[in-house]
Design a protein around this nucleic acid. Structure first.
Length: 476
RNA sequence: GGCCCAUUCGUCUAACGGUUAGGACGCGGCCCUCUCAAGGCCGAAAUACGAGUUCGAUUCUCGUAUGGGCUACCA
C-alpha cells in the first residue's frame, strides 16, 4: 500500500526510440531521489501513440535501464492498457463541465492556424466548443459526430512552483483549451500523464526542461481532476558539443551505444549523475551508495549541460583502475576475440595493462596479444627501430636468452642489457625492436614484464619469427 | 511571431553579497621512464554585455545579446 508520507516518483519514457542519455539521466535522478528519501520509483511506459510506439523499443529501453542499474520499484505500467481509466476520467470531466466536446475537424483547425500565421498572430483555438450547450453536445456525440474533448482552461495565470527553477508564471492568454481525447477516442499524452500521476500517487515530477512549458497544462488538469498537484523539478537539457539538444547527429546519444563502446554501466551512471548535480566538495568518483545518500534536488542546477565523451572515457578509466582484477578479467574476456591466456597469466596481464586501457574492449585486445603471435608488425615501428645491424643484435640476444637458466623480468632484462653492452649499443636499440617482435607494436607495457608473462618458448618463437621478416643478420 | 527557461575557464561544475573566483576533463610543461600509459608537481584558461540596488556584487533586480524549450486530434 502507498505510504502517504513517502515520495513517489516515476520515469515515463515513450517507446519511440531507444533510451537516450537525457532520458537515462532523468530516470537516474528519479531513482536517486527515491532512494535518498526512502520513496518509491515507478516505471511507466507512455505508449498511447499507437502509430509511433513499438514493442521492441520498450524491451530495448527496459534492457538499457537494467544494464545501467536503473531499477524501479513498481511497474512497468503501460498506458496502452489503461485506456478505461482515461475514458472514465474524460467522462467525469465532461460531466462536471470541466471539459467539453469540440466538433471542428482537423482541417478546419489547420485552416485557422494558417490564417492566424499569415496574419502574423499567435494562433489560439477559438473556443467555439465551450458555447455548445451540454444537451446538444451530448446529442451530437450520440449521433456519432466526430469530436475531441478539450479541457476548459482557467482564465487566470497559472503558476508552477518548480523545485529547481522557483516560481514560474504563465499568462492565461498563452494557454489554449488543449485536446484531452482525440476524435478516435484515444486519450492524449498530457491527459494520460495527469490521470496516471494522480492514480499512481506521484508526489514529485522530475523530468526534462522541455516539459516546463507543458506544466501549466498539467496544473490545470490536476485541478480539474480534483487531484493534489505534485511538486515539479525540471532538469536542464543535455546538449551536444555544438550546444544543441543531444541527438543522433552528435554520435552516440543512446545508452546502448555507449555500452557497445565499452563504457562501464557504473561509469556512465556516475558521469550522468554529475551532469547537472554536484554533491559539493571536489569529489568526482562516487559510489552508488554515496550518490543515494547525498542526492538532493536543491543541488541540481538549472542550466543545460554539454555531454563530453572525453570526460566519460576518463571516468571509465577511473572505474577500470579501481575494479578488482578478476572482475575486470571477466568483463574483458568477451572482447578477447582471438583468445586469452590462462587465468594466472591473464590476471597479471590485467594489472600490467590496467593503467593503459580505457575500456574492457581495449583490455580484451591486450589479453589476446598474449594468446596469439602478432600477425604483422607496425610499419612505422619497423622503419624507426629496425636498422641494418638490428638483426645481428637480436640473433645474439636470442641465443643468449635461449640458455638462460631462469626466465624472469630481472634475468631477461639483465641478459638484454649485457647483450647491448657487448654489442656496444644502448639497451634501447634492442628493447624497441624486441617489443615490436613480441607484440607487433611499438607501445605497450614494460617490455620485461611482457617477456616474463609470455614465457621463454613464446618469446623466443616470436623473436625468431620476427628475425625472418627483417633483413638477414649481417655477418661480423 | 508569442510564451517560458538558461547564461562562471573550451567542457562538467564550486563559491547560498565580502574568496588571490576553487576542483575535474581536456590542453601545455616538468618529474618518473625501455615505449605508451598511469601517477606526482607546475601552468594557461571563466563570472556574456549594459544599467541599477548596495559600503561592496559571480551572487539580488531590470534590460540587451546568445542558446534552448514549448506553441499538434506527437510524446
Amino acid at each position: 500500500m502507498q505510504d502517504p508520507t513517502r515520495p513517489r516518483v516515476r520515469f515515463a519514457p515513450s517507446p519511440t526510440g531507444s533510451l537516450h542519455v537525457g532520458g537515462a539521466r532523468t530516470a537516474l535522478y528519479n531513482l536517486l531521489f527515491a532512494r535518498h528519501t526512502g520513496g518509491t520509483f515507478v516505471l511507466r511506459i507512455e505508449d498511447t501513440d499507437v502509430e509511433r510506439s513499438r514493442e521492441e523499443l520498450t524491451a530495448q529501453i527496459l534492457s538499457a535501464m537494467e544494464w545501467l542499474g536503473l531499477e524501479y520499484d513498481e511497474g512497468p505500467f503501460y498506458q496502452s492498457q489503461r485506456e478505461d481509466l482515461y475514458r472514465a476520467a474524460a467522462e467525469r470531466l465532461l460531466h462536471e463541465g470541466k471539459a467539453y466536446r469540440a466538433f471542428e475537424t482537423p482541417e478546419e483547425l489547420d485552416a485557422e492556424r494558417k490564417k492566424a500565421e499569415a496574419a502574423g498572430k499567435a494562433y489560439r483555438y477559438s473556443g467555439a466548443g465551450r458555447a455548445i450547450p451540454p444537451d446538444e453536445s451530448e446529442r451530437r456525440a450520440h449521433a456519432g459526430e466526430r469530436h475531441v474533448v478539450r479541457l476548459r482552461m482557467p482564465d487566470e495565470p497559472l503558476v508552477v512552483d518548480d523545485l529547481i527553477r522557483g516560481r514560474v508564471e504563465f499568462p492565461a492568454e498563452a494557454l489554449d483549451d488543449f485536446v484531452l481525447v482525440r476524435s478516435g477516442g484515444h486519450p492524449l499524452y498530457h491527459f494520460c500523464v495527469c490521470v496516471d500521476d494522480t492514480d499512481m500517487g506521484i508526489t514529485h515530477v522530475i523530468r526534462g526542461d522541455d516539459h516546463l512549458a507543458n506544466t501549466p497544462k498539467h496544473v490545470a488538469l490536476f485541478r480539474a481532476l480534483g487531484a493534489p498537484i505534485p511538486k515539479f523539478a525540471h532538469l536542464g537539457m543535455i546538449l551536444g558539443t555544438d550546444r544543441k539538444k543531444l541527438s543522433k547527429r552528435h554520435g552516440a546519444a543512446a545508452v546502448e551505444e555507449w555500452r557497445d563502446e565499452g563504457i562501464l554501466p557504473e561509469a556512465l551512471f556516475n558521469f550522468l549523475a554529475l551532469l547537472g548535480w554536484a554533491p559539493g566538495g571536489d569529489r568526482e568518483i562516487l559510489s552508488r551508495e554515496e550518490m543515494e545518500r547525498e542526492f538532493t534536488l536543491d543541488k541540481v542546477g538549472a542550466s543545460p549541460s554539454v555531454f563530453d565523451p572525453e570526460k566519460l572515457l576518463w571516468m571509465n578509466s577511473q572505474y577500470i583502475a579501481r575494479m578488482p582484477a578478476d572482475e575486470l578479467l571477466r568483463r574483458s574476456l568477451p572482447y578477447a576475440v582471438s583468445g586469452a591466456p590462462e587465468e594466472p597469466v591473464a590476471l597479471r596481464a590485467i594489472e600490467l595493462h590496467r593503467p593503459r586501457v580505457r575500456t574492457p574492449i581495449e583490455m580484451g585486445r591486450a589479453l589476446s596479444s598474449y594468446a596469439h603471435d602478432p600477425s604483422d608488425y607496425e610499419p612505422e615501428g619497423i622503419k624507426k627501430h629496425v636498422k641494418p645491424e638490428t638483426g645481428r643484435h637480436l640473433a645474439t640476444l636470442a641465443n643468449r636468452l635461449e640458455v638462460l637458466p631462469e626466465w624472469t623480468t630481472a634475468s631477461t632484462e639483465a641478459a638484454l642489457r649485457e647483450t647491448a653492452e657487448a654489442e656496444g649499443v644502448s639497451a634501447g636499440k634492442l628493447i624497441h625492436p624486441v617489443r615490436l617482435a613480441l607484440t607487433g607494436v611499438t607501445v605497450g607495457a614494460p617490455l620485461f614484464d611482457v617477456v616474463e608473462l609470455l614465457g621463454k618458448e613464446t618469446s623466443l618463437r616470436r623473436l625468431r619469427k620476427f628475425l625472418e621478416t627483417i633483413p638477414a643478420p649481417t655477418s661480423v
